[in-house]
Design a protein around this nucleic acid. Structure first.
Lengths: 366, 366
DNA sequence: CGGTTCTGGTAAATCGATTCACCGCGGGGC
DNA sequence: GCCCCGCGGTGAATCGATTTACCAGAACCG
């Protein structure tokens, strides 16, 4: 037993590190930096310098080429773990999202939005050379909040629905960068300019001639985007000399009130919805009530997700630019990593309006 | 310059590893296993044994408790990198998905499916204690296919749309576990039982009394699920003594043919669709043509995603159990990690039928 | 009493890479 | 003549944990 077989001469011994193995092992032992060093006849340090392309390190081009060629020849692949352990960076970012909400009912509120945003974030991170690691907002047995500081990720981006404060605090106390998206928590925040989005919707409707415009939302006072969008809606109405009709927002949780508003001859001629899911929900209520969209009622959504395109009529909606939101979040993340100062206010990403078929000038009930 | 200030005593010196620092550093130095060892008055090995709870290692309960308590006291968090480097496992799995498709147009074909599946997989992995790392099927500048073997992940699960063969080969040659989902590639495969799904749809329609049943798909011969679902459809028709009407599948790419079929009095009274997105697309064509669903035409989807619930009429659809698919994939992954033998055939996950409002007995055109 | 086994651990090697300190030599500035 | 710097690298420490090998003493056995 215990055949050491320590072939770790570690220095420049064999120039050709591929002895004719009996092909027993399908997978050849992975090459380390030492193999490259041996093959190139230089030290491991030199290989490391060349391969990580450190600025300010001077090696003659000939040596550089020799090392690169040796690395190629032996099929060297850098081991991310060794590198990360020493350098202190793993080039990974955690994305904290409401995973269990996202895998629940196909029509869980906000499900589409969270999936779209999470995927956009992952794609942007990948594109930026940062490995996106998905984490659930709910603590689990195996992987818990504590993992924020176990160096598996360089930091986190919080897309969370719940517990955002906890994550921000955890991250701060672990000394780990943390950016929140569309949450009013922490020092590093990026948000859709929801106020502007709300204004865009109202301005469009006012421009079409609407005077009685309602707002439809989830009854969730804790929703920051909810509040912001409504603020924009109210402000734009005020700019046009108008006031909400009805005075209080309609709520998804109170469908009877919504139906009543649809039937009321002096009710709204247009509705701004918190998001596309609600807008489609409203479209379906309209169908049940015999209210024609956009003839009898104009409907504006928010998000511009798949529902806006598949619904009939296709939704006019405020587009929340998820890709840009994601890129901005990553940019903030990198600034924070570099030790920069947090922005004085949340960084805002501008939405725009996508006009489709669910809005028109008021007619029959105008 | 160059103040070394090497405070690396590194051995068991102070029992209390929290000298009254001037609070300059907001973030206290992270505790290592050595700190715990010092605090508990034992060796690092002992701490490692206790903390990783290795089976077959005997330590008296008193010592165990002392170590655990010391770890708690100094706020020890295990460094995932050090552990992974030595033990050879990172407890992470790569999920290779068509990220750029998923972040493209909100109605990109298959977009909803890929997002749902990817998220389901990530959630299942997280739940199982495996960190899900999202990777794009398209090679990128920073992170390439080669990263499969850089030990950032223990293996990969391929949800990819393109290049699946490449990933399977890469993984094999890197000696890395690899499972494919709904792709007929590689030795470790898990798939929805699409043939059964196709049968379920047809059997439901035949049970309602339909005799002329069409199939609507994307014109994509390379789609494995596409072929399988159609096989099930044809087989179930044959069992009922029927044949496809029309004989050849309708294609999304040929909307004129679809319209013609809808107008044809001797055309189909029901349509099986490859997925929910296509079913909704068909619903919208029906609306344009004045064809009432389900009165004039029954429509069955596949997937049971958000579109099936928000569409009107709500879709009768074959539910593809994504959560179970994901769990099965992870189970296969773990078997492969443990060196088990691949299953002789793709592991199949059973779909079921969700009956909603888009199907009914044929009437006017029956 | 000699020898073996069990108890309760420890010391040291190891994983793969990064990085700091430094080396010998020749040349240039003062 | 002295000092310093640049060249082209090298050696060794280090990151934080796991794991193998082994050890001193106690207990047990015949």
């Amino acid at each position: 037993m215990t055949k050491p077989s320590t072939t770790s001469g570690s220095a420049a011994a064999a120039v050709e590190p591929t002895p004719p193995e009996p092909r027993a092992a399908r997978v050849p032992r992975r090459c380390t930096i030492s193999d490259v060093a041996a093959a190139a006849g230089v030290s491991r340090s030199a290989v490391s310098f060349v391969l990580s392309d450190r600025p300010g390190v001077r090696l003659p081009e000939a040596t550089r080429q020799r090392i690169l060629e040796a690395a190629e020849r032996v099929g060297y692949r850098r081991n991310a773990l060794g590198r990360a352990l020493r350098s202190g960076r793993v080039d990974a970012v955690g994305i904290i999202a409401p995973l269990s909400v996202m895998v629940g009912d196909p029509d869980a509120p906000g499900g589409v939005y969270y999936k779209d945003l999470t995927v956009a974030l992952a794609a942007a991170a990948f594109e930026a050379g940062l490995n996106p690691l998905l984490m659930s907002e709910e603590p689990r047995r195996h992987i818990s909040l504590a993992d924020l500081s176990d160096r598996r990720v360089d930091g986190v981006i919080v897309v969370s629905k719940a517990n955002s404060e906890t994550f921000v605090e955890e991250a701060a106390s672990a000394g780990v960068p943390c950016v929140t998206i569309n949450r009013d928590v922490g020092e590093w925040r990026v948000q859709t300019d929801n106020v502007r989005g709300g204004r865009l919707a109202v301005e469009h409707l006012v421009g079409l001639g609407h005077r009685r415009i309602a707002y439809l939302a989830y009854d969730d006072p804790s929703s920051v985007p909810g509040r912001q969008r409504r603020d924009g809606y109210v402000a734009a109405l005020a700019d046009a000399g108008l006031r909400p009709v009805p005075a209080e927002p309609l709520h998804f949780q109170d469908p009877d009130a919504v139906r009543a508003a649809l039937r009321d001859a002096s009710g709204p001629t247009a509705v701004c919805c918190f998001n596309d899911e609600l807008a489609v929900w409203l479209l379906n209520r309209c169908r049940e009530e015999g209210v024609r969209v956009p003839d009898d009622l104009s409907v504006v959504g928010f998000d511009n997700n798949v529902l806006a395109v598949t619904a009939r009529p296709r939704l006019t909606t405020v587009r929340s630019p998820l890709a840009e939101l994601a890129r901005t979040a990553l940019s903030l993340f990198e600034q924070q990593q570099r030790g920069g100062a947090p922005p004085p206010a949340p960084v805002l990403v501008e939405p725009d309006l996508v006009v489709r078929d669910s809005t028109a000038a008021p007619s029959s009930r105008g």
